[in-house]
């Protein structure tokens, strides 16, 4: 991959990848480092991939890096501080953040890849290393749990 192609790939993938890393790790402060490391590993190992095929592979590397941090105990909890925003935004933000906190890491990951990145099941399988056949059922369970959590929050809001 030449520098120009990389610049184009970076322009398309860097922001979503950063958001994914920040939300999966719960550490926006280390997301920049992990992002750079992701691209470095990509370029040294698979720099010859077509940009279209690169996206799941980049997410796979990022996922592995986040898992490595968990394994080493560098990130033990969800530590992202709440940001300041307008009232409505803050509500949504806290909802999603609470949701993400309560979900298991795998559920978080699957929901993000499917609903934010719009990946197909086979792309999610590529990005997570899971078997393509199990994505459907795992995603279904994750969605049910997320809906239950969001619904519970909504009911609590209406009761107040």
């Amino acid at each position: 991959m030449d520098e120009q192609t990389f610049h184009a790939l970076y322009a398309v993938t860097a922001k979503p990848l950063w958001a994914y890393i920040a939300r999966m790790s719960g550490r926006p402060d280390v997301a920049n480092d992990l992002l750079q490391e992701t691209y470095c590993r990509f370029l040294t190992a698979r720099g010859n991939l077509e940009p279209a095929q690169a996206k799941p592979y980049l997410f796979r590397i990022a996922t592995n890096l986040v898992h490595d941090r968990w394994r080493k105990g560098e990130d033990t909890s969800w530590s992202e501080p709440p940001e300041i925003g307008c009232e409505r935004d803050l509500d949504t933000q806290i909802d999603v953040r609470e949701l993400m906190q309560q979900l298991k890491p795998r559920e978080r990951q699957l929901l993000w890849l499917a609903y934010v990145e719009g990946m197909t099941h086979s792309e999610i399988a590529q990005a997570t290393g899971l078997h393509a056949m199990s994505i459907r059922i795992l995603l279904f369970r994750a969605r049910q749990r997320a809906a239950e959590l969001l619904g519970r929050k909504e009911r609590a809001f209406h009761e107040v």
Binding site: Q93, D95, M100, L111
Partner: peptide, 17 residues
């Protein structure tokens, strides 16, 4: 259900970006 979750997550992603 999908729409509810997807919209929430996407809004959060847009905010992060």
């Amino acid at each position: 259900q999908t729409e509810l979750i997807a919209a929430s997550l996407q809004e959060d992603a847009a905010k992060a970006e």
